[in-house]
């Protein structure tokens, strides 16, 4: 097992999950509560990474993060190094790639809260932030947990986007899924098998925890 790649993968998945929760919670609340005409556009853009081939997303991110764009140059100036082919660049790519896995479950969770409960909170003087913090989040805790689990496992298994914007730099951008690719290229099937089994176990374990939690809470399967 490539321990360096393992540590990088865990770090990437953890940071990505935290950023996605910080971005996804307000975004999902906005989608659920807004009457803005451009809501469908925002919903479409946040869902797009679900349908887009990872290489297409990776290609555009590579262009965006590179020195040819103002954003890429500004980021390089701030960080002291280009975003592309760096850990920070991987985080940006992973956040965009896994955005639907954060926003979709939380939007569904917020939608499932009885609107009459939210109305009562409004009537009792609660503002949007208090409604989110004290009503929606506690009542949608399972959806937030599901979103976090999906974001983490999805990032752990990411390949296309990571390869496009991060390349294969040991200790900097080589994640476990890229390590498997390298191991197969080297005909090290036994090693590839061990790494693959490890990734499979992580995904299975996360889903078992999620569904086990749902079962213990008595939530019916849809």
């Amino acid at each position: 097992m490539d321990l360096q790649a393992l540590w990088l993968t865990v770090r990437l998945a953890a940071v990505t999950t935290l950023v996605l929760l910080a971005v996804g919670i307000p975004l999902a609340w906005w989608i659920v509560s807004t009457r803005a005409r451009w809501r469908p556009l925002v919903e479409s853009i946040t869902t797009l990474p679900l349908l887009l081939p990872p290489t297409v997303l990776g290609f555009y991110l590579l262009v965006l993060l590179g020195s040819r764009t103002a954003f890429g140059r500004a980021a390089a100036h701030l960080l002291g190094h280009p975003l592309a082919f760096s850990f920070a660049g991987l985080v940006v790519g992973s956040v965009i790639y896994s955005l639907p896995f954060a926003v979709q479950p939380m939007t569904a969770g917020f939608h499932a809260v009885d609107p009459a409960i939210v109305d009562q909170a409004r009537l009792l003087g609660a503002g949007r932030l208090r409604i989110l913090r004290e009503i929606l989040l506690p009542l949608s805790a399972r959806s937030v947990l599901a979103a976090a689990t999906l974001c983490f496992t999805h990032t752990v298994g990411e390949f296309g986007v990571v390869l496009m914007i991060g390349g294969d730099i040991p200790g900097a951008t080589r994640t476990l899924s890229i390590a498997i690719y390298d191991q197969v290229q080297d005909f090290s099937y036994a090693q590839a098998n061990r790494t693959s089994l490890f990734l499979l176990s992580i995904s299975l374990l996360a889903l078992l925890l999620l569904y086990g939690h749902r079962r213990s809470e008595g939530i019916p399967h849809v």
């Binding site: 409004r122 009537l123 009503i135 506690p138």
Partner: peptide
Amino acid sequence: PAGRRSIGFVTQQPALFPH
């Protein structure tokens, strides 16, 4: 806004905060 009207509202199905 609703929260600043000083109006209480109770319906047939009381929407208590269940948590």
